[in-house]
Nucleic acid binder design. Structure first.
Lengths: 385, 385
DNA sequence: AGAGTTGGCTACAACGTTGTAGCAGGGTTT
DNA sequence: AAACCCTGCTACAACGTTGTAGCCAACTCT
């Protein structure tokens, strides 16, 4: 019996009670969207053709001064705004980019926020809209998201967070939508990624400790299979090697990227190597845990043991002593990612280019740099990568 | 000489070098957007009319089984995805909501992130897209943003952060776009707001301290002209009044919502009222500052002085002792805001309803609740409001 | 057998733009 | 005076859908 969705349409009671402010109700309203002035209304009202209005709108420069002035006046008077929808349809471009953020519970890292700011800043200049989609990593329905991208003819994609799996990455790659992954190493024919120089950052952190006179430097690792973990470990080893300091397995422990893990890792290191004078942790959370363990063990930070973390989470600056750390340039990453996507869009032949950005060493209190120098915490130095 | 923008179109060199993966290149590409299969292709390929395909797509239920199967097969085979753009144009609905976030440098509060998660979760269910726009509060070009909203025929709006000014609020109100402000008290004919029960939260915090036996409870205020500040102060006074505890101006100081401000405010209170045994700060940042001041003054938290904050910033759980605080239910706020906007859209006659959500008391270590009970930090109790 | 009903399909006019092609008419060149 | 070129405008066919109206055949009633 159902002859189309029209049959199911609800007639909604229009109870217009409570009009505290009597607005001029010249606008006719349909469900949801106001019936709005179109280019035709302008044309009729100005006594010209639709084409003429369009040409004024798009600056063809072939309309007489008088006419243009009249058309513009009418547009203003009728409060006309050209429909992006119609324009996009006829131009066969959606002017929409999508950012999909896959997060796991508890991961509310300001880094994401910074990346988003960078992305929006850059693409707005180019006239694109950013649609945002946030999903839980464990949510199985990521295909649903992609379907929406296809239907919206999304022109470019940003993927960020902890993706639901490799299958998704491959599906996106085969979709041929220009894509830039944020801090997820994967490449395809229209797909590349931006990342921080993790090894370089770790090297800078370790070398900073070395430059402060330390040689018994512990390393608190993340967890083995993670690429990020490995790169940061590599940087640590490189720094030691560069300065002829032997690698001591008794100074290395895994903290599994958690605060509690950092604490127990530090305890193990203290037991195995009581002569430790500095710690580089592969994440701030672990560094904070390590500081707790040090305090419990009666070691003063930074006087007895210097600590440097990685990430620059919000807490790093509130913890006492404030944590020196390696900061990823979130906004810059967002901007770079956006620029790369825009290039990929405007130049379909382009070979996607992977981008590695330098990190920044943020010197606060926990590394004890201020014990030697005259100034307090908060000084920033560009990490050499 | 310029006969339209077509004349200015660039011919981009299509250097297709470096095809590491030889994809099947059956798709013809134009600038930016791939030429994609349309409903016509499906119709032709399946030997039916465009209408038939459309009817299959929209489940009119008036298409024969055999035909439907064939059409669906062709759709799958040609990897067809109906154009949302065209659909939206003909349906006169954009299915787009916009969230504008105005932030000032440094305000990277996880609260925003939670709200966004709530909003996206709720509107995706309803088939809407969320376009996100982040701007600096000091950026004068907010009219530009609104123009984009008009052109995109945005159906609903969320405003969050520190708005550039009242003028904007009024402009949005007169635009008649259904709007929900996040934690910004302002109402209009199609506009309302969601907020937390600041007074109730402050009351819960203060009463929690009272229930732990305190009566010399300091209050560290934000800054006077702020509505949030006032509400939280009100809650503090209510709690005291409810329990017959006299209000002592010597226990109140303003911390200007900063960490440093919290520290100096605490110092002033310690001087004026050395017998203070508990502190409620109107923000976590100030609470953290207050804890520093207490430590410097040789007072132990929570043994000598109990501390409760407000906001539940990320740092609250990393600081030691971990900070007990009042948490705004960001995700719930986002969800509520979204639901209200959706209602406003589907029922144009609706009177916008302001929403006040209860806050949550998060008991950690700084208030000393665990000194009395058997369990440690991290317990959550629903704030009574 | 004629009238009515139903199932399964299609034609067509929107929706609000854009951009190309073209057309007057006035001017300037040969 | 014929040939051209500008300037200022308009007609029209797209763009990819939707939803209504309607059509034809095949049934089911009387």
């Amino acid at each position: 019996m159902c002859r189309g969705p029209g049959a199911a349409r609800l007639i909604l009671g229009d109870e217009l009670k409570g009009e505290r402010e009597t607005h001029d109700n010249e606008e006719f309203e349909t469900r949801g969207v106001r019936s709005v002035t179109t280019i035709k209304d302008i044309a009729k009202s100005a006594g010209v053709s639709v084409s003429t209005v369009s040409h004024v709108l798009n600056g063809y420069g072939d309309i007489g001064q008088e006419t243009e002035k009249r058309v513009r006046a009418v547009m203003k008077e009728l409060n006309y705004h050209p429909s992006a929808l119609a324009r996009r349809l006829v131009r066969k471009r959606s002017y929409v980019l999508e950012l999909m953020l896959f997060s796991v519970e508890g991961l509310r890292h300001p880094f994401f926020y910074e990346v988003i700011c960078g992305v929006t800043a850059e693409i707005e200049k180019a006239g694109y809209d950013l649609v945002l989609s946030v999903r839980d990593t464990r949510d199985r329905r990521w295909r649903e998201c992609l379907r929406r991208c296809y239907e919206s003819k999304v022109e470019g994609l940003f993927l960020m967070g902890t993706l639901p799996g490799r299958a998704m990455l491959e599906e996106v790659a085969s979709s041929r939508i220009p894509t830039v992954l944020i801090d997820i190493p994967f490449e395809g024919s229209k797909m590349t990624y931006v990342t921080s120089d993790n090894a370089g950052g770790a090297r800078a952190a370790t070398e900073h400790l070395i430059s402060l006179g330390h040689s018994r430097i512990a390393f608190i690792d993340g967890h083995a299979p993670s690429a990020i973990s490995e790169e940061r470990a590599l940087g640590y080893r490189q720094a030691l090697a560069n300065h002829g300091i032997p690698l001591d397995p008794g100074l290395i422990a895994s903290g599994n990227f958690t605060q509690e893990g950092g604490r127990t890792a530090m305890k193990r290191v203290l037991e195995a190597s009581p002569d430790v004078t500095a710690v580089f942790a592969a994440s701030d959370l672990m560094a904070i845990g390590a500081m707790e363990a040090l305090r419990e063990a009666g070691r003063k930070v930074p006087q007895d043991v210097a600590v440097v973390g990685f990430d620059d989470i919000e807490a790093a600056s509130y913890v006492r002593p404030a944590l020196s750390t390696i900061k990823q340039q979130g906004e810059t990453m967002g901007r770079s990612a956006a620029r790369e996507v825009l290039k990929l869009i405007s130049n379909p032949g382009r070979q996607p280019k992977k981008i590695v950005l330098p990190t920044e060493l943020v010197v606060r209190e926990s590394c004890g740099a201020w014990l030697n120098s005259s100034e307090g915490g908060g000084v920033r130095a560009q990490g050499l990568s």
